[in-house]
């Protein structure tokens, strides 16, 4: 699945953060978002996932194709690993192949353990396993490797590589090298000018489409 985005402008809390975001990623490749804290990576991912409207511009594919994973894992601590995953599988209308999703992240032995009794890394792995049961072709991941140990990062990278091999796509805000084929997008290139008082704020000349194409 090809990812593309044209002249997208995003805002957080009414403040324009990024404007003129333009990229195109070939099928089977990931888009790695980079930029310092507060540069708008999360806002861009949330906008693409349909959690907030864009100020302007358009993006493909539509949010209905995207599985989002944010800072929080979205787990219910009183439900077991299997119950958590099965719920998402049913909600997304996919056949609940919960067992293989658990196995992919090395969680078979924790299948019947309540999420409350898992470590932060185990919870993160379970949260990432949810991506597999959604059946969606595009993964939008916000710092997916937080609290994962080295072995788990490798495991996650291989799951991600398999997803891309199978024709999927991924947008990932991360600071570590996952070793998956992909382009890097530095979001600071699209930073908006701070808005004038009382106005919506206008994008400056920083991030225009030509720059972006050249960058990729």
């Amino acid at each position: 699945m090809e990812l593309s985005c044209r002249d997208l402008a995003v805002a957080r809390g009414g403040w324009p953060l990024l404007s003129g975001v333009t990229f195109r990623v070939a099928p089977g490749r990931a888009l790695i978002l980079r930029g310092p804290n507060g540069s708008g990576k999360t806002t861009l991912l949330r906008t693409l996932a349909g959690l907030q409207p864009a100020l302007s511009g358009r993006a493909d594919p539509e949010p209905g194709m995207i599985a989002y994973h944010g800072h929080a894992d979205g787990l219910k601590s009183t439900l077991t690993a299997t119950e958590n995953l099965r719920f998402w599988a049913e909600l997304f209308g996919t056949s609940p192949d919960v067992r293989s999703a658990l196995a992919a992240f090395g969680l078979e032995r924790l299948a019947d353990r309540a999420a409350a009794h898992m470590s932060a890394g185990q919870r993160r792995r379970l949260g990432l396993a949810r991506l597999m049961v959604t059946g969606r072709p595009v993964w939008a991941l916000d710092e997916p490797t937080v609290s994962l140990d080295t072995a788990s990062v490798t495991r996650f990278a291989s799951v991600l590589a398999r997803h891309l091999d199978a024709g999927g796509a991924a947008l990932i805000a991360t600071h570590i090298d996952l070793g998956v084929p992909g382009e890097v997008l530095d979001v600071t290139a699209f930073r908006s000018a701070p808005p004038a008082r009382g106005q919506g704020g206008a994008p400056d000349g920083f991030g225009n489409a030509a720059d972006a194409e050249a960058f990729l």
């Binding site: 959690l51 209905g64 599985a67 929080a72 979205g74 787990l75 601590s77």
Partner: peptide, 14 residues
């Protein structure tokens, strides 16, 4: 909202 489920529900197909 606290555990992030609300974001995921908002992106779910329902």
């Amino acid at each position: 909202r606290e555990d992030g489920t609300l974001d995921l529900l908002a992106t779910a197909p329902i």
